[in-house]
Write a protein that binds this DNA or RNA. Structure first.
Lengths: 200, 200
DNA sequence: CACAGCACTGAACGGTGTTCAATAGATTTT
DNA sequence: AAAATCTATTGAACACCGTTCAGTGCTGTG
């Protein structure tokens, strides 16, 4: 029996999340289970429920971390001093690279569906919004005479597009092998879309 | 106990698939279970395993039917006698409409992941390829001086894009409410991409 | 040193996919 | 018609899943 107060709630939470992430990275979404996480950190399943509302909650916390990692990756390209088109391509490619390097972690963000009725908490939606905002800002210099609404719509279409390519590629539904081809597809999508958007 | 030979293997298979589809349509992927399907058709779970290899197999069969339905929907717009651009937009919108009208059925095609190592059977991949082929053909009239490879790549980028918008929209990650807005996004993606692709 | 409080346990519940010895109903043989 | 054979179907069993909560035993307090 793990001693009482060996670890604070916060420590427990941290240990559990780290252990769970390890399982996900190695075995994917399907490989994750409350009992496995508990065993990894030397506690029993009941304890997990003192720290997390339920398994969905735990998954959401991991996905939040994944979104943070992804965001960090996408902050590496710098908007200043390069062509806006190149910047957006770099954003897209950072996204693809992230998904390729850590497919299990990435996939869980999109494979995890919460119960039909329940919706994602605001703080989580915020993290998603933050990524769309990056695209929106990257698109801004190319706005020309487009309205703000147009830019918003374009950023969504564009990012949805990149995401779609990423999904299909990772599930082998694109008949495309290797990251390089996927990167090319992404670049094709972005550059052609932008050509259409800016109208030249 | 259901009488011996009340139904042929083929009838059993048909009954099971129909029952399973009903469950999926009503309750989604998560709501599906071998026992529920068996109960629906008046047999016990063991019998299902005489007809299907396992639950993944059953799901794959349903997904194959879904792909057929989707394909039928996408065959309704006619390539002849309209502008190729309009045709591709119609294809995209048929896709979105299908996903919107039957989200559970559609979602299962993409939510279902088979074990890491196993890959989709050839006859199934064929059905996926058939859909990409439609896009490729729709794109052909706009090929101009592009190589065949370019057209192939463009069709994948384009379709991946439509798919991505569809996914994000259905999981409420686009902050877009209502089918109409999604249709607009799709049209934006396709028309702008095509403008870039054809270069005018 | 006793005791109260509570961190933690782990068995229990109802679910899942999957297997396979046993059964019961149909068919064939006697 | 009865007996024997055959086999489609059963359903209990297994190992897992998420979740709950009465009980246990450690720990800080009085």
């Amino acid at each position: 029996m793990a001693r009482r107060s060996d670890h604070s709630r916060e420590e427990l939470r941290e240990m559990a999340l780290t252990a769970a992430e390890k399982i996900v990275v190695e075995q994917g979404y399907e490989g994750l289970s409350a009992r496995k996480v508990a065993a990894q950190i030397g506690y029993t399943v009941g304890t997990l429920y003192l720290v997390f509302e339920n398994i969905d909650d735990l998954i959401l916390q991991i996905n939040a971390r994944t979104l943070d990692r992804l965001h960090a990756r996408m902050t590496q390209p710098h908007a200043n001093s390069i062509d806006p088109r190149d910047y957006l391509v770099q954003l897209g490619q950072a996204y693809i690279r992230f998904a390729d390097e850590d497919p299990h972690r990435w996939a869980m963000v999109f494979e995890h569906r919460l119960a039909e009725d329940r919706s994602l908490p605001a703080w989580y939606q915020e993290k998603v919004a933050r990524m769309f905002a990056m695209v929106e800002q990257g698109l801004q210099p190319l706005a020309g005479r487009h309205s703000q609404d147009d830019v918003l719509q374009a950023s969504r279409a564009l990012w949805g597009g990149v995401h779609g390519i990423c999904i299909l590629a990772l599930s082998d539904n694109l008949g495309v092998a290797g990251v390089d081809s996927v990167q090319q597809l992404t670049e094709s999508l972005i550059r052609n879309y932008l050509k259409g958007f800016t109208g030249d």
